[in-house]
Design a binder for these strands. Structure first.
Lengths: 418, 418
DNA sequence: GTGATACGTTGCCAATGTCAACAAATCATC
DNA sequence: GATGATTTGTTGACATTGGCAACGTATCAC
């Protein structure tokens, strides 16, 4: 229950403009005027401040067919960069993502075994140090980490990452100390839903359920009423432990009859005769679609029916607009979307089912990079004036590398923003 | 994505002060200063505006033991009134609830049979007309209806109220036309969670799950991330249709093995040898606690275990701080809270279970009156300046009865606010 | 009664968005 | 190519609002 003062208005308006150009792509000043309802002169002043802070750039107007004075294009800067990190069992992936959506760098560092927390921090810090040098002229405003496990929202403590064997590890503090850059972390599936919500199949929706099927289990994330729902401590979205049967098989948490116990990637691979380590999501989907084995088909149907029970629970409880399926759940869905639809319809209230869609995730391998970068950008998007009070005259947005060697890009590719 | 201007700041600040004194009870100006972070002079100006609009009243300071000038007490007005309506199968209950929390009137109109939509509107409009006369000097700002069924949030259409037999009834429009007062409607359980959240056991919490057990089934409501989660169309919270077993019994929607199919008030009453129509929630709870029948105890245990499955799904999915149980679910809980706790713990992730509590609803029979009134107050709380632009000099907040007959109160009782 | 403390009130100030008038840049038409 | 219509950026005056400091006021402790 905080009161508003003038600074809040300015901050809010700057925040809205920055969010619009970051998430919606470049927009003309005239478009911003219409979208925000603010006055032309106000937009002019706000954009000027964002330009001065280096957060957006103004480009010459696009040639348009309309009469009238052309409006300059406002685009999020390529030079404001977040570092996205995703530690996994066999590799650590690090990306440098600009506010504009451009992925400047994408580095996958394979590890011989599942990294300990110390190894993960050391490896990441090393990659970050290199990125600092390479991206010397860019402002690195933060690091976002997508963790395959439970992450406490308040301080980024990794409560339990079963896959990696981490328990109660202060990942954020360690990585911040090792790099000198602010670090935020969250559950990977929560970040997946963030990415899908802003840049994927959930654009513009307010009530969104995301389920991701990974090799170690099923996780998910929620957007409810337009806000990412983390729950009290950030553990929301654990769909894998939803009860779907009276079976006795247990999941990773030792609970019987859950979605994660009944619907597994492992079982699908085994039925197909594929090796776990060598099969990515696309390969699995192609193999499932190509298979004419009755055993495989029966397994798929069985898993789809269990999945439907969990989705039905979510639909009845949350009345979402869209359910997004990622990982091997997307592959399952691709085999027989109609079966899933019918099964969910049979278990839900007609009114709630009427306007829900079930769709595969559209963002591919960059999903977690985009989500983790978004997490790191959030502080800046909430308050684009973070460096106010700075009297040095220098931009203080996050860390600025001292080294100014010309950057060379190994990867440079935009979000599917437009 | 709307921009802020000056009016928004003022509106927001007025809104916050009004919410504080409405939901938190009377507060001194000095307290408001501390709570909002606003300046003393600003609080003075804002409170003066609210007083002028008749929304709050300033009282002489309470005698305090502190040194210094005493601060006037700001309290929500008794004269700003919302009308709460709850149609049920055997009666229509109408209450007149003041912004201060005082319940000026509470009228239960018994109906010989389940009312049709036309009957419900006519009966309600009659009671409202009488309330208008009786409360002539008061401003009636709106009507809130708690409907036992699915209500579309966008326009208050009653999609399906199985208990009453209503399908796609434009209740809000009909009642607004019959009374001349703006009407809003929502699902009764959603309003229950609103009431519990602001005035009951969920005060100050941001993530809250509410399940209510009624004679016709099990409904519920959610507060997620501090906002009431209605889902895309307002149908969220239908916990009754969560799958809890592989059983073949079906619920009111024809779905088998759901919470509502396995956990019923009817079965409890039958085991106790009680009549449905004559047993209220308290009586049921006392009978359950007093019973030493093994059959009853086994049934209770069975129902508690099924309830635990549904609650565990909610905990894993939503990571709430509190689960509130109302109606006969509170009675079930009272019999053996520990059994329920243990059963939920066994089905949830330890991290998510660690900080969740399961508690009975504390608001009694006034629950829906308070929730429905809150729904009607919401527009005023969002924008206390609703009548700006009014040049007549008269207060235009909602309807003002023409008749000024001195009101006599049949019921006058405060919320459990303080 | 005196001082300390806490708080309301008042007048001035700074920040911000709005508005209206004007300038600039484009398209359509002649 | 000149002209008008249209759209938009720019500029300066303006209104509104909350912050702030000085002052006044009401209580308590001694």
């Amino acid at each position: 229950m905080q009161g508003n003062n003038h600074d809040d208005v300015r901050r809010h308006n700057l925040s809205i403009i920055l969010r619009l150009v970051h998430r919606g792509g470049a927009a003309s000043r005239a478009q911003l005027t219409r979208l925000t309802g603010l006055n032309r002169s106000t937009i002019g002043a706000l954009v000027a401040e964002l330009v001065e802070r280096g957060l957006v750039e103004e480009r010459t107007p696009d040639p348009t067919k309309l009469a009238g004075r052309p409006s300059p294009i406002v685009a999020a800067s390529d030079r404001i960069v977040a570092i996205a990190v995703n530690p996994e069992i066999d590799a650590i992936t690090v990306g440098a993502v600009a506010l504009s959506g451009v992925v400047h760098r994408l580095i996958r560092y394979a590890t011989p075994s599942s990294p300990s927390i110390a190894e993960a921090v050391t490896i990441t810090a090393g990659i970050v140090a290199k990125l600092k040098r390479d991206l010397g002229e860019y402002s690195i405003i933060g690091i976002g980490v997508a963790v395959p496990g439970l992450v406490r929202a308040s301080d980024g403590l990794v409560r339990h990452a079963p896959h990696l064997g981490w328990v109660d590890e202060p990942l954020c503090d360690l990585l911040a100390a090792a790099t000198g850059i602010p670090v935020v972390a969250a559950n990977d599936a929560s970040l997946g839903v963030t990415a899908e919500r802003y840049f994927g199949s959930g654009q513009g929706l307010t009530d969104l359920v995301y389920l991701n099927g990974g090799s170690s289990g099923i996780g998910g994330g929620l957007v409810i009423g337009g806000v990412a729902a983390g729950g009290q401590a950030g553990y929301a979205g654990e769909f894998g432990h939803t009860r779907v049967s009276d079976g006795i098989d247990t999941d990773s948490a030792g609970i019987a009859g859950t979605l994660e116990a009944e619907v597994t990637r492992h079982a699908l691979l085994a039925a197909l005769g594929l090796q776990a380590g060598e099969t990515d999501a696309d390969t699995l989907e192609r193999a499932l679609l190509a298979s004419d084995s009755l055993i495989v088909r029966n397994l798929v149907n069985r898993q789809l029916d269990f999945l439907a029970i969990a989705l039905a629970s979510a639909v009845n409880m949350l009345n979402p607009q869209l359910i997004v399926l990622g990982g091997f759940l997307a592959a399952l869905h691709a085999v027989d979307p109609e079966r899933l639809n019918v099964a969910v319809a049979a278990l839900t209230l007609p009114a709630a089912f009427a306007e829900v869609s079930i769709a595969p995730a559209v963002l591919g391998s960059n999903l977690l990079m985009i989500g983790a970068a978004e997490l790191a950008f959030e502080a800046l998007l909430v308050d684009p004036q973070q460096d106010r009070g700075n009297t040095t005259g220098l931009p203080l947005l996050g860390f600025r590398a001292a080294d100014t060697a010309a950057p060379t890009f190994s990867t440079s590719q935009g979000h599917p923003l437009s």
